[in-house]
Nucleic acid binder design. Structure first.
Lengths: 192, 192
DNA sequence: CCTTGAAAGTGACCGTGGTCATATTGGGTA
DNA sequence: TACCCAATATGACCACGGTCACTTTCAAGG
C-alpha cells in the first residue's frame, strides 16, 4: 500500500494507474471497473488490492492528481484582487469537481482525513486550496475583522455549497459561478 | 415505489420499515443488510426492491424521519436571540447527522435533489431547515445587509463544514460546537 | 360465483468489489 | 552457486446489492 520497494512492484503499480487513467479517459470515472483495470494492466485481481486498499483509494490517486494539476495552474496565475476575479480563478476547479456526480461525492468523502486514517491525495489538495486562499485574502481588499484562515475555510464551505446546489437545479456553469459570487461577496465584503 | 394502493402492499412496506428500524436500533445504519431486512420482515428480496428503488432509498426514509423528529423539537423551542443560542439549537441536529460517517455521507448525497429525480425525505428536511433559519434570522439581531435566505444558505454551508471537519480531527461534540460558533459569528455578525 | 387483468410477491441469478491461502519471484547471505 | 525468506502475485472464492421472468393474489365487472 505504501510505495512498494521492489522495482517489479513499482512497475505493476504504474501499469495499474496507467490502465485506470486510460479507462477513465474513455468512459469516465463512474464507469471504471476494477476487473477491467486489472485486465488491461495484465495482472490478477488480488494484485490490485495489494496496491490499493480499495477501489476508492485508486480514485483518490487519480482525482487528487487532476486537482493538483488544476491548483498548479491557479497558483501560476496571479492573486485575484476582488470577488469576481476570485470566482473566475476557481471556475476550473469547480468544473472538474462537478464533472460527474460520482466524482463530487468521492471528493466530499475524501476531503477530510475522514474515511481513511492516513491523509490521502484529495485531502491534501484541500490543504493546498486553503493555503492558496489564505495568500489571496492577505493581499486583496477583503474584510480584516476576522483571521484570513477563517475566511479561507468559509470560501471552501461556500465553494462546496455552490457545487452541491449545482446538482440540484437546472445546472449551468454560469449559475454555479453566479451563486459562488453572491456567497463570496457576502462573506468577504460585508457592508453592515 | 410510490405509496402502494392495496392494503397488503402497504402492510408489507410497513413491515419492511419496521424491520429496518429495529435492525438499525440494534446495529446502526452502516451495518444494515437488505438480506436481513427481508428475512426479518418475512418477504422475498425482490419484494424489497419493488418497494424501494434501492437500499439508499430506504435509508433516505429512515434518516429523513429522524431528522424531521429533531426539527420538530427545534421548531417547538423558541427562536435563538444570538449566535450561541443558535448553535445550541443546532447541536442535536449535528449530533445525529454525525452519529455515523455513513449517515453523514448519505445525507450529503441526498441533501439535494441530486442523485434522485423526485425529491426525497432528506432533501425535504433541508428545505425545512432553511425555513426555520430564515425565521430566526428575521427576528434576531443579525446582519441585515444581505437577504435572510442567503444568510440561511450560509448557515447551512457552515453547518456542513463544521460537521465535515468533525470527522477529520480529534472530534468532540464541544469542538464541533465551537467551530460552528466561530463560523456563524463571522457570518452573521461581521464587524468590519 | 366466475373471469380476468393489474398489483404484489418470489427466488434463482448476476455483477462487482473485496479476501485469503497458496505459489512465485527477487535479492541478500554463506 | 545454492539457499532462504520476505515481497509480490495469483485466482478461486465470498458478500452483498440489485434484476427479471414467472407465480400468486386481489378486486372489479359480468
Amino acid at each position: 500500500m505504501a510505495e512498494p520497494v521492489q522495482k517489479r512492484a513499482r512497475e505493476t503499480r504504474a501499469r495499474l494507474i496507467a490502465a485506470a487513467d486510460a479507462l477513465v479517459a474513455e468512459r469516465g470515472f463512474e464507469a471504471l471497473r476494477v476487473e477491467e483495470v486489472v485486465l488491461r494492466a495484465g495482472v490478477a485481481k488480488g494484485t490490485f488490492f495489494s496496491h490499493f486498499r480499495d477501489k476508492d483509494a485508486l480514485m483518490d490517486q487519480l482525482v487528487g492528481a487532476r486537482i493538483n494539476g488544476i491548483l498548479d495552474e491557479i497558483e501560476a496565475g496571479e492573486a485575484p484582487r476582488d470577488v469576481d476575479e476570485m470566482v473566475a480563478a476557481l471556475v476550473s476547479l469547480m468544473r472538474f469537481m462537478t464533472c460527474e456526480r460520482y466524482v463530487f461525492d468521492l471528493i466530499l468523502r475524501y476531503s477530510g482525513a475522514a474515511a481513511v486514517e492516513e491523509i490521502g491525495p484529495i485531502a491534501r489538495t484541500f490543504g493546498r486550496q486553503m493555503d492558496i486562499a489564505v495568500g489571496w485574502l492577505h493581499e486583496g481588499p477583503f474584510r480584516r475583522d476576522v483571521p484570513a484562515d477563517l475566511l479561507a475555510e468559509g470560501v471552501q464551505a461556500f465553494l462546496v455549497q455552490a457545487m452541491a446546489l449545482h446538482f440540484c437545479m437546472l445546472h449551468s456553469d454560469q449559475a454555479m459561478r453566479d451563486r459562488l459570487a453572491v456567497y463570496l461577496r457576502a462573506w468577504l465584503m460585508p457592508a453592515v
